[in-house]
Design a protein around this nucleic acid. Sequence first.
DNA 1: AATGAATGAGACTTCATTCAT
DNA 2: AATGAATGAAGTCTCATTCAT
Lengths: 216, 216, 216, 216
Amino acid sequence: MGATKAKRMPREVREQQMMDAAVQTFGRRGYRAASMDDIAELAGVSKPLVYLYLNSKEELFTACIRREAAALLDAVRGAVEPGLPADRQLWAGLAAFFTHTAEHPDGWSVLHRQARTTGEPFAAEVVALRGEVVAFVTGLIGAAARETLAATDRAPDLAERDVAGLAQALVGAAESLAGWANETPGMTAKETAATLMNFAWAGLGNLMDGRGWSPG
Amino acid sequence: MGATKAKRMPREVREQQMMDAAVQTFGRRGYRAASMDDIAELAGVSKPLVYLYLNSKEELFTACIRREAAALLDAVRGAVEPGLPADRQLWAGLAAFFTHTAEHPDGWSVLHRQARTTGEPFAAEVVALRGEVVAFVTGLIGAAARETLAATDRAPDLAERDVAGLAQALVGAAESLAGWANETPGMTAKETAATLMNFAWAGLGNLMDGRGWSPG
Amino acid sequence: MGATKAKRMPREVREQQMMDAAVQTFGRRGYRAASMDDIAELAGVSKPLVYLYLNSKEELFTACIRREAAALLDAVRGAVEPGLPADRQLWAGLAAFFTHTAEHPDGWSVLHRQARTTGEPFAAEVVALRGEVVAFVTGLIGAAARETLAATDRAPDLAERDVAGLAQALVGAAESLAGWANETPGMTAKETAATLMNFAWAGLGNLMDGRGWSPG
Amino acid sequence: MGATKAKRMPREVREQQMMDAAVQTFGRRGYRAASMDDIAELAGVSKPLVYLYLNSKEELFTACIRREAAALLDAVRGAVEPGLPADRQLWAGLAAFFTHTAEHPDGWSVLHRQARTTGEPFAAEVVALRGEVVAFVTGLIGAAARETLAATDRAPDLAERDVAGLAQALVGAAESLAGWANETPGMTAKETAATLMNFAWAGLGNLMDGRGWSPG
DNA sequence: AATGAATGAGACTTCATTCAT
DNA sequence: AATGAATGAAGTCTCATTCAT
C-alpha cells in the first residue's frame, strides 16, 4: 500500500495516484472527515501538489465521483451483450455490477454512501449516474415485456409509472445487496445476481400478465 | 419552523426541542457538516445548554438515532395486526413504513443516510435497528411459506440462506423506494407499498414453488 | 466524604462545608483546574448558593487561603511555650508545623503549592503568612544567639542579612521536608522535626562562633 | 522581547522560538492560565504553526519541562570538577545551580512551581529530575563522610535514612533559597551558595561526629 | 434559605488553502 | 515538477457567573 515514492513522475500518473488515495480516503471516512493531509500523505506527495493538480477538495471529490461512476458504468455496459434475451442481459448486467462493487469497495462507497450524503453539488453527480442506470434497466424491462408479448400475443399491461417504480425497486434492491454481499463472506457476485433475479423476475413476469398482488 | 423562543422551559421540553433541531440538522447536512452552533440556534437556545443536557455531539447524535429508530419501529409494529395473513401483514407494515418515512424525512435521513455513513459507533446503532426489521420480515416470509404449504400440501423448498437474501433484498428495496417516494410528488405511501408488493410477492411465491429463475 | 445533604442549615455551617470542599478541590486540582461545579457538588449544595455566600471564585480561594493560613499559624504558635530555651521552642514549632501539614494535606497544598503558583492577588496572601513565619524564626535565632552570647561572654558575630538568609533556608527546608514527609510512609512529624534540627542547629551554632564554612 | 517577526524560518529555529515563548508564558502564568494564543503571539507565529510543530499543549509543556531540566542538570554537572574535595564540589554545584536559576527564572519557575503543581503527567517529569539531583547530593554527602573518616580514623555514624533526609533538606533549602535570591536584589549566586554551605556544612560535620541535636 | 434554567466568553484543536522557493 | 513554511476560519467543549422563582 502507499504510492511509489519516486519523484518526478509524469503528471497523469501522479494524478491517478492522488485520485486512488482520494477514493480510498473519501470512501472510508467520508467527505468531511477525510482531510487533504490524509490524502496527500497516502498519495505520497505534498499537499500543494494536490492543489496544483486537482485545485480544491470539492473538485477532487467531484473528479473521484466521475471517475468511479464511469468505471462502474463501463463495467456494466461492457458485460451486456445486446443480442441476448432481456433476462440474460439483465442478469449479466447485475453480475457485472456486483463484481465491480466487490472489487472496488472504496469506489462504490464513494458513489453510494458518501457522495449521496454530502449534499450538493455532489449528490447531483450520483443522481445522474443513477438515472443512467435506471434508464438502462427500464429499457430492459420494456424489452422483456415486448418479448413476452411477442411470444404470447397479448396486449401490453404495464403503465409507464409502474415500470419506473419497478426499475427503482430493482436498482434499490441491487444497491442494497451490493453492500450486503460485500459484508457477507463467501457470497459471490453471481450468487448475489441470482438471488436478485429470483426475487425480481417472477414478479415482473406476473405483472406483465396482469396478475399483480393487490391489497383487496 | 424554528422553536418557540420562550425562556425558562422545563428540561424535558427543551431537550425535545434540541433533539428536533438536531435531527433536522443532522438529517440534512450530515454528522460532520452539522455544527453544534447550527443546532443550538435552530433550537433557540445557547450552545452550552445543549452540552448541559446532551453532553456531546456524539451523544446527541446517538440520542437522535435511538429516538428516530424507536419511532420508526413503533410505527411499523403498531400497524401490523398479528391475526392477518402474512401478505396482508407485510403490506400493512410496508405502508406504515412508507408513511412514517414520508412524514419524518429528516429522521429517516438520519437513520438511513447519515448514521450509516458516519462510521462507528453510529453505524452499529442502525445495524441493530435494521437487524430487527430484517428479522421481522424474515418471520413474515417464513409464515407466508408455511401458509402456502398448508394450502397446497407441498414440501418446503426454501433454504435459510435464500430467505435471508430475500429479506435483505426486500428491505433494501423498501429503503430505496422510501427515498424515491419522498422525491416523487404525488407518490403516496400506499401506492409505494403496492408497487413493492407487486414486485416482490409473486417472486416469493414462485420461489416457494421451486420455480426460481436460473441463468441456465 | 460528601457533605451532609440536610437542607436548611445555618449559614455559618454551610459556609464551612463549602470551604472544606473548596480547600480539598483547590488543594488537589489547583485554582484553575478546580471548577465551581466541582466544589458545589462536593459541598452538596447548588452553585448559586456558593455564589450567594462566597461571591466569586477569587474570593472563595482567598477565603480558603486565609482560613488555612490562620489555622497553620495558630497550630505553630500554640505549640511554642515562650519560657523555654530557643532551641526547644524551635523544635516545638517545627514539630507542630509538621504535624499540622500532615493532618491537613489539602490545606497545606493550597498554601504551599497552589496559592504561590496562581499569581496575584493570591501569592501576596502567602507572602504575608510566610513573612510572619520567617519573622518568628528570625526572632528565635536571635534569641538563641543572645543566649549563647550570655553563656560565653563573646561579641555577636552575625549580620542581619545572614540571619535573614538562615531563616529563609530553615523555612525553605521545613517546607520542602513537609512535602517529603507526607509522601514518606512511616515518617512521623517528630522524626521530621528532629532531622531538620540535626541539620540546622549545629550549623547555626558554628556560625555564631564565627566558624562558618568559606570557599577559601 | 518579542520574537523577531521574520517570516519563513527553518523549522528548528521556529521551534526554539516557540519553546522560549512557552517557557516564559508557562513560567509566569502557570499551565492552565497560559493560553496557546498567548504563546503563539509571543512567539510571533500563528497558533496552527505551534500545533503543527509541538502537537498539543500537553506535549508543548512536557517539551519545555524536559528542555529546562536538561539545561539545569547540564549547568550543575558541568560546574562540578570530580577531582575536588566533596565540600568544594558541593559548593561549586550550588553556585552553578543558583547562577542558572537566576539567569533562567522562567525556566526555573516552570520546573519548580508550575510543573509540580499541575499534576500528572508533568509532576513525574520533575520527580525524575529531582531524583537525579538528590542522588547527586547524596553521593557528595557520602563522599564527604568518607573523607572525614579517612582523615580522623573514626567509624561511620550515619544511617542511610538520615543521609536521605539530609539530602532532601539540603535540596529543599536550595530550592527555597533560589526563589528567595531571585526576589532579593543584590543577592549573588555565590553569596547564596555560601549562605547555604554555612548553614548546612557544619551541621553535616557534627552529625558525622555523632553530635546531633536531640530534643532530650 | 435555596435552586433549576440559562449564557457570554474563551479555551484547545483542526482544516482547507496559499506563499515563496 | 515539487515542497517546506505558514495561516484565517471554524469547530467542539468548558467555565464562571446570573436570572427568576
